[in-house]
Amino acid sequence: MHEQATRFGRANHLTGITGLPTEDARSTGVIILNAGLVHRVGPFRLHVEMARQLNARGFPTLRFDLSTLGDSSASGESSSREQQVRSDVADAMALLRKQAGCSRFVLIGLCSGAQNAHLVAHSSEAVAGAVFLDGYAYRSTGFKLRHYLPRLLNPARVVRHLARRLRTAPAAAGSGFQVEFPPQARVRDELAVMLDRGLKLYFIYSGGSSWYFNHRRQFGECYGRALATHPGVTVSFNKEVDHTYILVGDRRRLLDNIESWLCTHFPQPAPARDTRQAAATT
């Protein structure tokens, strides 16, 4: 494994670390997006551990900071945040294509990173897969039944809940990372478009998302059976872990699952010429 710190991008404004396998590099590069405002190392260094584990399995990686986050500056363009994200990730793909000869890419993102991964995966032909950590989902009837029924059937919890409501002002649902989701129908349609293009999608939900997702079955309740049973879709829900994987053992299991999913869906090594020749000619 070899890591290289780089400034890159259309305005040379982005900062990132490429991780290149020493041998048998695969043609699929993995790009890890910022989780919220945390710089590219990720929460509790999750992205560093992820990149190095995937490098060891032959995947070239890039962990980098989007415009204005971490160590990256503004591009100076007057474009929407969505357009900037698309352009930043396009720059990231160009870098990994140049340094490692990658021809297709998998995006991995947690929370806002998952939303950005969704945004780019929907619009970029170069994206072949995505891993969404606590990405989009919507409260279904099943969610409400699973959430409220146990509480209603327990009078002590009802009393505690009412007392709490009377004592405190209404708080935002969930812990501090609540974000606004686009309309459910739009997300469903965009996921369908991705799957029609042949993308492989891995949805991983943690207990930290339990304010809007509380059972693996909910994915089908949100997006329909056709999407939930599509061979390109993998869904997991681990209720006991937190949103940012603070425990070492939880991180290890998460990374093993992602590695296993990647190796299953993107198994082939890069053609021998790609990596070295592409690097030599640029």
């Binding site: 929460p43 509790f44 260094r45 339990s210 603070i246």
Partner: peptide, 18 residues
């Protein structure tokens, strides 16, 4: 952070995420 308390072993030999 957690839906339910985690076993002590899951937090051993760590300080706040590391």
């Amino acid at each position: 952070r957690f839906v339910a308390p985690r076993p002590a072993t899951a937090l051993a030999d760590q300080w706040q995420g590391f």
